[in-house]
Simulated scan of single mutants.
Amino acid sequence: MGSGGGPDGPEGEGGWRLSGSLEEFLAVAGAYLRSRPALHTVALTVSDALERRGLDLYGDEPPRFGWCAEAGEVSAVLLWTPPFVPMVAGGDEAAARGLARVLAGGEGPAPGGVGAPVEQARAFAGEWARATGQATRRTFRKRLYRLGTLRRPALPPGRPRSAGEGDRATLERWHDGFAADVGATVGLGAGAWVDAGLARGGIRLWEDGGRPVAMAVATQPVAGSVRVTTVYTPPALRGRGYAGAVTADLSARVTAGGEQAVLFTDLTNPTSNGLYRRLGYEPLAEFEEYTFEEGRAEAAAP
């Protein structure tokens, strides 16, 4: 990226500064992210993973970072790990539009989309369309939940257990099944994803009749928060209560360790939203993701 707020460059439009340095990003914006760990769960876990495992974790193209400061206080951040779309955390619509103009006017690869809280995502997408002439298309609507008081469901047959190396083939297959269900890449390839999950002991299974029938996964704890993710039951085994049972078990383990549990749902999936509410998860915020495409520019979808 070049003009106005390029990596290690001057402050850009609307107070934005961009950097290629994770160390600088965390030094400047880390406290802001940790101040609201549930709301900033993705930025925290991704930056933590990059710090622990290297900047090439998600691909060969270097990550990009940014922050918007008002009166010396960070109010929004950018975390972009190609090939995934940039994530914007915090800020308001004006900040989102300013960032869109900075990225549209800079050098280097252009983002293929954006993910952010609803109003910021729409503001960014609309400004990007105006600045570039590209069309914008909403691809995801997500809701972030935080666990209040866990309400355990009636349990199906079986028991929970931690996944081990002997489960690798099943886990890799389920990783791909989950990705197909949600229509998105799940961060890492199946093998690397299993390696990371087993290494941190973050994959819980529900086992019935001696075989795994469902899984739920916990991220690495960061700033007192853990995200429950990749809850999956093979299609032939759904509707039996396995997903609720393994999610409740994992959630209880998270809170027993003193962490708060959060998770995302697809707003177009009433089954998962209903399940997590019954378990005691409470809505916290909504997010949208947009893809940018060549063609007639349109305003962000309502």
Rank of each mutant, 00 (worst) to 15 (best):
A243P: 09
L18G: 15
T229G: 01
R130D: 08
P221E: 05
R101P: 11
R138K: 12
R278Y: 11
G98H: 11
A76R: 03
N269H: 06
G257R: 05
D195Y: 09
A184Q: 13
E172V: 12
R253E: 15
L188R: 14
G241I: 05
F264M: 12
G9M: 12
A300G: 13
R97S: 14
T291V: 13
G105W: 13
A223C: 04
G241P: 04
G106K: 10
T132F: 12
P86Y: 02
L79G: 02
V28E: 03
P37Y: 08
G241M: 04
A125P: 00
G59M: 03
S19Y: 07
W80G: 00
R141W: 08
G210Y: 03
L155W: 10
R138E: 11
D181R: 15
T132H: 06
G2M: 12
V228Y: 00
D195H: 08
A129C: 13
G98Y: 07
G115P: 00
F292C: 07
E259I: 03
G59D: 00
L44W: 10
G244I: 09
T170E: 14
V186W: 12
E286L: 01
S225H: 13
E298Y: 01
H40K: 04
R138C: 13
T229S: 12
M215E: 13
G72P: 04
A199H: 10
V222Y: 09
N269F: 01
L279P: 10
V88L: 13
G66C: 03
L250R: 08
R122K: 14
G189E: 09
G15M: 00
V262I: 13
V88T: 00
A300M: 01
N273Y: 00
P37Q: 05
P86Q: 06
L267R: 15
G115F: 05
T233N: 02
G30C: 06
A256Q: 11
P37N: 04
G197K: 09
R101G: 05
G105Q: 11
D266N: 13
R200P: 05
P117M: 03
A49I: 02
A154M: 09
D92H: 01
Y290P: 03
H175S: 13
V186A: 12
A192D: 14
F65Y: 15
S225N: 15
V46I: 09
P111V: 10
A218V: 06
D56V: 12
G15A: 04
R17G: 07
P7F: 06
G9Q: 11
A297Y: 06
G166K: 14
Q220S: 15
A180S: 14
L237A: 11
R200M: 14
A256V: 01
S19C: 08
A49H: 07
G177H: 07
E70W: 03
A116W: 01
G202M: 11
G115N: 01
K142V: 04
R200V: 14
P212G: 11
A300K: 06
E207N: 05
A190V: 15
R240F: 00
G9V: 09
D249M: 01
G183A: 02
P153W: 06
R168P: 13
R137W: 02
D266V: 01
A214R: 00
G4C: 10
R146M: 14
G187V: 08
A196F: 15
E61R: 15
A190R: 12
A100R: 07
G148Y: 07
A248F: 09
G112H: 05
A285C: 08
P270L: 10
G274K: 11
R253G: 15
W193S: 15
G20I: 07
V77G: 03
P117F: 00
T41P: 00
